[in-house]
Nucleic acid binder design. Sequence first.
DNA 1: GCGTTTTGCTACGGTAATTGTAGCAAAGAG
DNA 2: CTCTTTGCTACAATTACCGTAGCAAAACGC
Lengths: 109, 109
Amino acid sequence: MAKLAGLKTRSIRGSRTGRPVMALLDLLGRRWALRILWELRDAPLTSRALRSACDEASPTVLQTRLDDLREAGFVELGEGGGYGLTALGRELCEMVMPLHRFAERWNKT
Amino acid sequence: MAKLAGLKTRSIRGSRTGRPVMALLDLLGRRWALRILWELRDAPLTSRALRSACDEASPTVLQTRLDDLREAGFVELGEGGGYGLTALGRELCEMVMPLHRFAERWNKT
DNA sequence: GCGTTTTGCTACGGTAATTGTAGCAAAGAG
DNA sequence: CTCTTTGCTACAATTACCGTAGCAAAACGC
């Protein structure tokens, strides 16, 4: 119910302001969203493997976020099982990648 | 208390895994974090102006997130009042900017 | 076939984060 | 002094999230 309620109250696409960026920032601002994109960066993972990669995060949120990302068209569930990035998702992931180098330098501040 | 509890349970820098990226993804994954960076992209804003820009978000979270971003060194409070990005924050913001164009295309999917 | 393992996914109670409204003290302007 | 605006906080209510356990279905081995 938490999932449905979340999907009802929040409007991913178009958001309240009508500006697409806001909707995207809203989606990426939810917990584990960026992390999931990050972990799927170079290979699809099964739901269980993804959970392990995400520091054993609760399957409840992971599933919810996976649904969000799937509805947004960034993630898809392969027919042979396992979650992977779509073409659009890979494109988005390309923008998240530079954060790696940045975080390294940031840590030394 | 929510703020202090948040800062206690979560460890922004270094995080649980020790990898800086995870700490950064964790920080940016909190609500309004990305949005705040976005709204401060080209000019400092007062706390009230920022609130208006963020769709009248609750000042409680905004303040908490502002503290988080300040502790991380991305945002600073100018002596004349008003929140602005630090040099590091501007650098990070440069990586968020491309999301704008991307979101426009994404909306047409 | 039958059991075992793994898949994606969900129920449930507890905890933490977020919301929304109201308001404070301090600093500046008139 | 009065009025406005600053950054910031209290408080209760709602929502999101966590952690454990477990389900049905599909794929394995035998």
